[in-house]
Design a binder for these strands. Structure first.
Lengths: 116, 116
DNA sequence: ATAACGTATCAGTGGATAATGATATGACGG
DNA sequence: CCGTCATATCATTATCCACTGATACGTTAT
């Protein structure tokens, strides 16, 4: 599947679901913590566990999700598995979100739809 | 801004929750449909209802969420309430997400963590 | 006033999902 | 081989969230 094809798909009716799924991949503090751990480069699962403070099965689950969503990539090395951001755009998207937050997101923590 | 600075920003502890909340605001197909309806300009609630195919209370609920999150702004005019995107960056973020999807998102619909 | 209209809120319900503990799989060293 | 380590999967649980229908609130027109 080429980028052009995917672009075409985005124009179709399922575009909303795809976008929603991408954003949902980024909508969890645990996954953001994992991505955060990967901004500085490749890391093994246990390094991510240490850096994020999350449980190991939990990290594995989220990594599986992030991998399926194409946000991270994976490289096996012996019994270690090293993850990295799949694309510079991932960090860029997070960075842009921060800029949007700085500009308009002052009240975002008062959004009552989400209680967490 | 350097990668180092981004790293530092990402280290702020409550930044993760804020970012997660912002992305969560964008992680629902209904809300994306609403934002999509607003890309071309200001619209009343019923126009959004017609454009998105969602129920009116549902739209109101999501609009409340988007408003609290600072993603849209609101203007009352008689008994109409007209909404618009709060910032060009909102559309920009969605656009960037589409570009990321085009580049790496081929498998995002196969992510099994989300079944919808 | 009162009816009609546009929008917002509320309560209930069904379904999704994040976290945890236990366990399985696979790789290395002794 | 066998024990240990790194990672992945499974089952459970408790929570959260989106949608719907009913209804309340505010505004305009008759």
């Amino acid at each position: 599947m080429t980028a052009r094809d995917i672009q075409d798909d985005l124009s179709a009716s399922n575009a909303l679901e795809l976008r929603a799924k991408l954003f949902r991949g980024l909508s969890d503090p645990s996954r953001l913590a994992i991505l955060n751990a990967l901004v500085s480069g490749e890391r093994s699962v246990q390094e991510i566990v240490a850096h994020s403070g999350l449980g190991q099965p939990n990290v594995s689950n989220h990594l599986r999700c992030l991998l399926d969503c194409g946000l991270v990539s994976r490289r096996t090395e012996g019994r270690f598995v090293r993850y990295r951001l799949a694309d510079r755009r991932v960090a860029s998207l997070i960075h842009d979100a921060d800029r949007l937050l700085a500009a308009t997101g002052a009240g975002i923590d008062t959004c009552e739809r989400y209680t967490e």
